[in-house]
Amino acid sequence: MRHKAQILDKEGIRRALTRIAHEIIERNKGTDGLALIGIRRRGVPLAERLAAKIREIEGSTVPVGTLDITLYRDDLTTLAQQPLVHRTEVPFAVSDKKIVLVDDVIYTGRTIRAALDAIMDLGRPRVIQLAVLVDRGHRELPIRADYVGKNVPTSRREVVAVRLQETDGEERVLILEND
């Protein structure tokens, strides 16, 4: 895998998240009934960071949950081995909440489809919105993000690699290309 370009550095990520935090508050007119759910793996630290920023801005605490979408994937019948299943931890009732789903990259939209089903199985939220750090295009389902850190046109051969301190020990977003 060849390193092609860096699209965000540490500062870029920080600024993007700060902007998204402001937009979430703006759009939802405050934090009342708001909850964040991060999709494993990198959506989880991003959701936590957004919650921290919202607290900085608004002074109120927004609950954060963790979603594992493995059991909702639509490609299980095509994989040679079953992917590992991790815990879903949503320590609050989702019914009637304004849920902001958080992930690092939106690509085909299939992960978000699975996440929507997973959340619906937990209850009936008033609204579900989507926040992503990077939108790289190539959607295969009619799904779009409400909050986007950066839109990056890519080719299908390329890979967008989000590296976060919590999961990868560094802070940047790269475009890699298969040789």
Binding site: D68, L71, Y72, V85, H86, R87, T88, E89, A118, D121, L122, G123
Partner: peptide, 13 residues
Amino acid sequence: PMKEILGRRIKKV
């Protein structure tokens, strides 16, 4: 995680 599903109101994935 399977046990977590058993604790839900809708026990189905």
